[in-house]
Design a protein around this nucleic acid. Structure first.
Length: 288
DNA sequence: CGATTAACCTGGAAGC
DNA sequence: TGCTTCCAGGTTAATC
């Protein structure tokens, strides 16, 4: 499942195909994913042109020519893929050359700017993902977007912001950075990696971060995200880009999924513990 | 109100 | 081989 670098990689794969593409048909294999699909989902999409593919935190955001905004969250196992030559095999039922699997939940037929008919397919075995469709003008102020903190790669995110927002939080740093209202887009992998790079214990109380550590943490977060994006994200089990390519950043993990291995900095053994139900990987010698 | 926990789902790996 | 248990890139409703 995808964190910011994986979603960004998916976005970059989809953008060239979807930008300017017009939706001709939509097929839903079931009434819901994590949540029910929006009311009249297919009808509202049909005939619309996708203007762009943007990203906010772990959401893909697609403004439509109708003024509505389509968003998609991949949850843990969501994938998009594009297949060529969409065709209607029966009225309202089309498409891809490949027969749908049991986990292909959404098929969208589009005509691209270059005139190709393609099928955009969303598949998601665990169905933790979801799609939403916001009415004209409703997206920006929606509760889901308002509750998100700043983009970690954006200008609003800084050491002074972090110190300030964490000032009265007694929760561990690990949990604080996973909180999407503190900073939006980090998940389990990149929180573990960033805390290691910055030399900060995942157990440290957020309120005790301090200016010096915050000054190390912000570039650590930005650096690891940029490295991961450059590598096409991390592929552990499920994640693949829209073009089917696998990420390679897992080969660069410093601590994540490396329990029992030697720390690359000090040689001591990388440990694993559970914090708020999630595995934390860390070096107790390098991280204080 | 802030902070952990349980729940949502399925599949693959590991243990017996 | 087959059954059981545990674990997973996330979010959120319920509970402490």
């Amino acid at each position: 499942m995808p964190e910011l670098p994986e979603v960004e990689t998916v976005r970059r794969g989809l953008e060239p195909v979807l930008a300017g593409a017009k939706i001709s048909a939509v097929h839903l294999a079931r009434p819901d994913l994590r949540f029910p699909f929006p009311e009249r989902f297919g009808d509202r999409l049909k005939g619309a042109t996708i203007e762009r593919v943007d990203r906010r935190a772990k959401f893909l955001v697609m403004p439509l020519s109708t003024g509505e905004v389509l968003t998609a969250h991949l949850g843990m196992t969501g994938r998009f893929r594009v297949e060529g030559l969409a065709h209607e095999v029966e009225p309202g039922r089309f498409y891809a050359p490949t027969p749908p699997t049991g986990h292909d939940h959404v098929e969208i037929a589009l005509t691209t700017v270059s005139g190709d008919d393609v099928a955009l397919i969303y598949s998601d075995p665990r169905r933790f993902g979801f799609m939403e469709l916001f009415g004209s003008g409703e997206f920006e102020g929606s509760g889901r977007m308002v509750s998100l903190g700043p983009e970690p790669l954006g200008n609003e995110f800084s050491a002074s912001y972090l110190v300030d927002v964490l000032r009265d939080r007694s929760t561990p740093m690990k949990s604080a950075l996973l909180d999407q209202s503190v900073v939006a887009g980090l998940g389990n992998i990149y929180v573990c990696e960033a805390l290691f790079i910055a030399g900060i214990s995942p157990r440290r109380q957020a309120k005790s971060l301090g200016a010096a550590r915050a000054e190390r943490l912000v570039p650590a977060i930005r650096g690891v995200l940029n490295e991961a994006i450059a590598a096409g994200g991390s592929t552990l089990r499920d994640y693949v880009a829209a073009d089917g390519k696998l990420g390679s950043f897992q080969q660069s993990f410093r601590v994540y999924d490396r329990e029992g291995q030697a720390c690359g900095e000090c040689g001591s053994t990388i440990k694993r513990m559970v914090q708020s139900g999630r595995s934390t990987f860390f070096c107790s010698r390098c991280q204080r």
